[in-house]
Amino acid sequence: MARKTKAEAAATREALLDAAEAVFLDKGVARTSLEQIARHAGMTRGAVYWHFKNKADLFRAMLNRVRMPFQELVEEIDAPDLGESPLEAVRLACLQGFQRLERPRYQRVYAILVHHCEVFGDIDPLALQEEMAEESCGALIEYFTAAAERGQLRDDLGPELAARLFQAMLGGLFHDWLRKQDQFSIVERGSELVETQLRLFSRRD
């Protein structure tokens, strides 16, 4: 059999990740086998093992397709002078994240992580959620620190507390939205909550 090109191998890998999303969402992660994923993709189990060491490796690869590092969201924003406006950078980065969450893939994968994934092997869904939350909070601390240094954060609110409060709001919004995605737009409600909280955090002269 001819050796696959890099493009063909990449397409096969993406097809397997797409199949994993569908089967994990339908059956749950713990009850899904690699053979079921391969069959859903129209491939053999050997194709799965060619690209992934095991189910945990496949799961992490699926999750990584929708990871949203905060700094990456900031870098996607096409706006000048965000370095001098850290609170505005936070607002725009959050909006960028909310817009991503309205894409079907993001909705499926985060629903799997929160509602369809039990502890298995070396995968702990709660630990993964905590890891992602702490990654986001660490970035927020940096931006709120920059805001404080520029006199933009209210005097009675430290950067770390501001980041924790903001992260708690985002976490509550995210989990509420995952439970009832058809009842409200995360872009609209999220934008309203973020803008309100940032106003409350801002220093008033």
Rank of each mutant, 00 (worst) to 15 (best):
Glu130Tyr: 00
Glu131His: 15
Glu131Tyr: 08
Glu118Ala: 07
His115Met: 10
Gly121Lys: 02
Gln129Trp: 11
Pro125Gln: 10
Glu131Pro: 07
Met132Gln: 12
Ala111Asp: 15
Val119Arg: 13
Asp122Asn: 09
Ile123Val: 14
Ala133Asn: 09
Leu128Cys: 09
Leu113Arg: 09
Glu134Trp: 10
Cys137Tyr: 12
Ala111Thr: 09
Gly121Met: 02
Pro125His: 12
Ser136Lys: 07
Glu118Thr: 06
Glu135Trp: 13
Leu128Pro: 03
Gln129Val: 01
Asp122Arg: 03
Ala133Cys: 11
Val114Cys: 05
Gly121Asn: 03
Cys117Arg: 01
His115Phe: 15
Glu118Tyr: 04
Gly138Trp: 13
Ile123Ser: 04
Glu131Trp: 05
Gly138Glu: 11
Glu135Lys: 13
Glu118Leu: 06
Glu135Tyr: 12
Ala127Thr: 00
Ala133Thr: 00
Leu140Trp: 14
Ala139Thr: 10
Ala127Ser: 03
Asp122Ile: 02
Leu128Asp: 14
Val119Asn: 11
Gln129Arg: 07
Glu118Ile: 05
Val114Asn: 06
Leu113Pro: 05
Gly121Ser: 03
Ile112Ala: 04
Cys117Phe: 02
Ser136Asp: 12
His116Asn: 01
Gln129Pro: 00
Leu140Thr: 10
Glu118Val: 03
Glu134Val: 05
Gln129Gly: 00
His116Met: 02
Glu134Lys: 06
Met132Ser: 08
Ala111Lys: 15
Ala133Glu: 02
Ala133Asp: 05
Glu130Cys: 00
Cys117Ile: 03
Val119Pro: 08
Ala133Phe: 13
Pro125Met: 11
